[in-house]
Design a binder for these strands. Structure first.
Lengths: 332, 332
DNA sequence: GGATTTTTTGGCAGCGCTACCAATTTGCTG
DNA sequence: CAGCAAATTGGTAGCGCTGCCAAAAAATCC
């Protein structure tokens, strides 16, 4: 079946079929400029009859500004990014923008290569996670002249637009909450921090806050892989095997925390009396647990929405703090 | 900062700077055709010096075939689709293809509109979920001449390429498993089936198999919203409130099943002795549960990978059955 | 060394569309 | 009905690149 035909109908053919000029067809189709109702009908009839689909590649090349928005994201496994994409894509679709994406696997070098590939499409904007980019990436983005949006981080200097919240503040508040609740032997279970720099920021400010409170972190278990339920479970198991008497554990993410929760369930460790658990992200899943997860709810979808809105509106450079919400839950 | 400059360096400028012709630069950059090592160096130096980024829009227009792959997916909340994108994007990136996507919210009308918008970019292929498309969508895709890949379903006739597995078979095997285990009062908790037609197919063949086994479905609870942990919990609660003595419940998805599991935990309902739970998808989370979830593991990532590989290789029309795996788990 | 063959190279016509400008038609005013 | 403004319309030059072809340069052969 579908092999090579590719019988492309062009604007010129529509114009001829409708008996009008090319520019008239173009104006009607974009609903831009003026034309009579009768002309409009003739053109639309021809479009319909020929099954014409405008060629946006050609249109973009001929005009200025592309209605493409490029996302260069670290991962699709970490639910954060699909959530951001979801928020953004709804807004973009409404405004007839098109989203393109690629995945860096938290590798700054790959980010640079992919950003370059993206720029080749001359997007209206490039959206990236956070502030940690190679010099090459920064230079390229600066030179490109296209809008740059850095997402989900506010601890640093934005290249252009930034939308998100402070991960440091999130770490700080998490620690403050645990301190306030009276926990004194606190541990940490996390995934690879070198790659996920936002998790790294949360962790370091968490530790600082604990120290400032006179209750430094007792132990940590950092797993090489990605954030996952399985790793959370494994991490807590290892941590507890090594360190006795912990009374609370901070997890780098809700899925990790859920894994820890499962471990406690399986081992009969009472939560929170014997061990408290605190997560990060505020996934829906945490609310459905028998004991709602204590965590920080982050504005993932709205980060995407706001970012997209700013791009569509061609807003001036700015940093938008969407904040986050500490959820007390029942696990800490 | 970044406001309007957009100082675009063009191929012609690079050619001039390198003291060679445009086509020579083009050949060097694409590593296509022949040129001497010395020329190569001169060109690369000029590219470097000017910070030239090729314009793929122009390149695509001038050449034939676009290296863009369009995904028209129902949702980004349902983890299935990020997983598919993940598998596909890795393969596409390796082959210098670019992924573009948009989200239909399980709305066939929106699918048609978005597919049309996608086609305007003249992609090499369009990837869609399943076989249920409007006549308009089908006609458009057929006429477009671009490759069409239908994902995650094999119960129907493919337009061109199909990659996935049979949802009917999955429903059948799930039912067969529960029957074999001796469950006799079986219920169902699911999300909106009109929208998610693949879940609908699983459900109907599940019911047929139960009936064939002489043990028809006892009760069902179908929630309006999307598949989620919260809805699973709520759904099971409602189902049990209405129908007593169920001994097993089939959920439309693992996250729904997890919600059901949480409900049982909270209510002290013993699993599986008092109530068995069976899911669908085989998410990682199911393996980390204190009692591993009984479910069907679907090849989500590899569906994306294979689909992308076939497109990149411009393979002939075919249907690829990736199968699925029934995981016995401990909840049923 | 001259004749061929092979490798490199540059020129230029589009790809399908939009932006700009000028030409034409229509509508109104007095 | 002339006279002018406003609304429509068509022509056409690119947008930046690739593909084709022919010219030029280098390599090979007898």
């Amino acid at each position: 079946m579908e092999f090579k035909p590719q019988v492309t109908v062009t604007l010129a053919e529509v114009a001829e079929a409708a008996g009008v000029g090319e520019s008239t067809v173009s104006r009607v189709l974009r609903n831009h400029g003026s034309f009579s109702g009768k002309t409009r009908e003739r053109v639309m009839a021809a479009v319909e009859r020929l099954g014409y689909v405008p060629n946006r590649i050609a249109g973009t090349l001929a005009s200025t500004g592309s209605r493409l928005v490029a996302f260069v994201i670290p991962s699709l496994s970490n639910i954060v990014f699909p959530d951001v994409l979801r928020g953004a894509s709804a807004v973009l679709e409404e405004n007839r923008y098109q989203a393109v994406f690629s995945v860096t696997d938290y590798d700054p070098g790959k980010e640079e290569a992919l950003a370059a590939a993206m720029l080749a499409w001359r997007p209206a904007a490039v959206m990236l996670a956070g502030y940690e980019h190679t010099d090459g990436t920064v230079k390229m983005l600066r030179a490109s002249g296209c809008r740059v949006v850095e997402l989900l981080d506010l601890d640093g200097d934005a290249l252009d637009i930034a939308v998100g919240f402070s991960n440091r503040a999130a770490g700080r508040e998490s620690a403050g909450f645990l301190l306030k609740r009276g926990y004194r032997r606190i541990g940490y279970v996390g995934h690879d921090l070198n790659r996920d720099t936002r998790a790294g920021k949360r962790f370091s400010s968490f530790c600082e806050t604990l120290e400032a409170g006179g209750v430094p972190l007792v132990a940590r278990e950092i797993l090489a892989g990605a954030s996952s339920v399985e790793n959370g479970r494994l991490g807590l198991e290892r941590l507890l095997a090594r360190t006795r008497d912990l009374d609370a554990v901070y997890f780098s993410n809700d899925d990790m925390a859920l894994g820890g929760y499962f471990h406690c369930l399986a081992e009969g460790i009472a939560i929170p009396s014997k061990l408290a658990i605190f997560g990060y992200n505020g996934l829906d899943i945490g609310r459905a647990m028998p004991q709602p997860l204590s965590t920080i709810r982050t504005p993932r979808v709205s980060t995407g929405q706001i970012a997209a809105q700013l791009v569509v509106a061609n807003a001036p450079p700015q940093a938008v703090d969407l904040g986050f919400e500490l959820i007390e839950g029942a696990t800490a």
